[in-house]
């Protein structure tokens, strides 16, 4: 396997100085790989992704993208360097048309815009049919599709997604995961946070389990799925995302 493309080491981050939400998390993802971060609510998963995207201040640790150290860089520089981020909520501009959403997504790419728009419509024909309509008319699944298409406008080498299947119908969840698999096939590195832990790990190559802002477990997705400690605490039979109290081994 190729060397990791995005590497985060011992990231400490939070909104308020002195009150970190992420307390030293490490993770990495390589080209063509899907890596999923799971963990209970409040584990700091979302904040971790936002910190990598430059949306939350990183107080210590290091982020590398390719050969460059990008810790603390402005979001627009990270985007220019090949990172893309799909937030969990509010991830499309509802007052803009679908076409405008994609165009804003390609804000930084200049003359390549035409070609990328065509590529987006080719990949998501459902969006092409509605290109002139405001994004607010889209269904939940279509919005997610638009959010991903928008993030892909810059031809990123790494795409990070915050709970891409939250609130979606089970059939649509499958579609989104299939899209992500196809994406990984094109050599993009996919890093996502998911509450839908089991389903997400099934399509992932590797996974991390976070709790209380720290790494708890990590390994191949299949190992995590099979690990009774992980299963009991984090893939709970009732539903995913229930906090486990006992600490496991850390990697």
């Amino acid at each position: 396997m190729s060397p990791p493309l995005l590497v985060a080491r011992d990231i400490v981050a939070g909104y308020v100085p002195g009150l970190p939400i992420v307390k030293g998390v490490s993770a990495d993802v390589a080209r063509g790989e899907i890596v999923t971060i799971i963990g209970p609510n409040g584990a700091g998963k979302s904040t971790f992704l936002k910190a990598l995207a430059g949306l939350v201040p990183v107080t210590s640790g290091e982020v590398r993208l390719g050969d460059a150290v990008v810790t603390g860089k402005d979001t627009h520089r990270l985007i220019a360097a090949g990172l893309a981020f799909v937030p969990q909520t509010g991830n499309v501009f509802t007052t803009l048309t679908i076409h405008e959403n994609l165009t804003v997504g390609g804000h930084t790419i200049g003359p390549a815009l035409r070609r990328r728009l065509d590529a987006a419509y080719e990949m998501f024909p459902a969006l092409a049919a509605k290109r002139g309509q405001k994004a607010r008319v889209l269904s939940g699944g279509q919005r997610q599709m638009l959010a991903i298409a928008r993030a892909l406008m810059t031809e990123p080498s790494v795409i990070m997604l915050d709970e891409p299947t939250a609130g979606l119908a089970p059939r649509v969840v499958g579609e989104v995961f299939a899209d992500l698999r196809r994406l990984a096939q094109t050599d993009v590195a996919v890093l996502m946070v998911e509450q839908n832990a089991k389903a997400a790990l099934r399509i992932s190559d590797r996974g991390y389990v976070l709790a209380d802002g720290e790494n708890r477990f990590s390994g191949a997705a299949s190992d995590l799925l099979a690990d009774p400690a992980v299963a009991e605490a984090f893939l709970g039979s009732r539903r995913a995302g229930v906090a486990g109290s006992e600490a496991g081994r850390t990697h």
């Binding site: 995207a53 949306l55 402005d74 979001t75 627009h76 985007i79 220019a80 893309a84 981020f85 799909v86 937030p87 509010g90 991830n91 499309v92 501009f93 509802t94 007052t95 803009l96 804003v104 997504g105 804000h107 930084t108 928008r150 993030a151 810059t154």
Partner: peptide
């Protein structure tokens, strides 16, 4: 509409 999403789109 959304300053944070605009940032994620690379808007300065």
């Amino acid at each position: 509409e959304s300053p944070s999403l605009a940032r994620v789109c690379g808007v300065q």
